[in-house]
Design a protein around this nucleic acid. Structure first.
Lengths: 124, 124
DNA sequence: GCTTGACCTGGAGTGCATTCCAGGTGCCAA
DNA sequence: TTGGCACCTGGAATGCACTCCAGGTCAAGC
């Protein structure tokens, strides 16, 4: 029998709330989650694995709509791997650009900090 | 006579819409902007300078509320420089952390990409 | 048997940052 | 004098990603 995780366990593991977890499922970001006889969700290893990637993509600002596309491809099976690859590489590139932009902006901010420190230094 | 910029010029320069520009002003992110006799805004060099920093901070995800605090300090004069410095250094640090997080997540994504590429390679 | 805690549902509500709109003014060029 | 364009106002609407709620179920422990 496959190991399964409760909603509480999964939520704690990924730092998500139960509401967010359910929301992701409703939005189609996860493949259909199995249920215990009681009706409670039971997450399998494959769910957790996908959620790990989803969290990764979400934390790097991939929009929900794009994540849904990705999850749909996952549901369609291995033949969609080229499409998934395209989504991931595009996101990877966007991420590289975003990081570069943040660093550029950070430099400007650091210059401003240095300027303010200079003003304070003179005043002494 | 001081050079002044029209709303259209400023919006184009910073890649903002006129609506956003007005919104920032309403929210107190800019110091009071002067008007031409017609009622139209005339941005002075100091407005543009502040807006440049605001844009930098906004583009690095500083929330509007925090930006308002900062702009209020600017309006209160030079004695608030230590407070402004505190806001900027805190943000600078948050930014460093954010960049580190993005890079970490990016690595995971790149591993996934490599994995998918491996799968496709084998299939040939 | 009864409470407690974890979970369930559908749907409403929230917060943030814009973005849009309707109805107006001022000024320049044809 | 008539467009057309850039701009003005207050206020409403939008999009996104949650987050909350009311009213219920289920299994375990006292």
């Amino acid at each position: 029998m496959e190991t399964a995780y409760t909603p509480g366990e999964v939520a704690a593991r990924f730092g998500l709330t139960l509401d967010t977890l359910r929301y992701y499922e409703r939005e189609g970001l996860l493949t259909e989650v199995e249920r215990a006889p009681s009706g409670h969700r039971r997450y399998r290893a494959s769910d957790v694995e996908l959620l790990d990637l989803v969290r990764c993509l979400r934390d790097t600002d991939m929009p929900i709509a794009r994540l849904r596309e990705f999850a749909e491809l996952v549901r369609e099976g291995d033949r969609t791997i080229p499409d998934r690859l395209e989504i991931l590489t595009a996101h990877d590139q966007a991420l590289t650009e975003r990081i570069a932009e943040l660093r550029l902006r950070q430099e400007v901010i650091q210059h401003k900090i240095a300027y303010y420190e200079g003003v304070l230094g003179e005043a002494e």
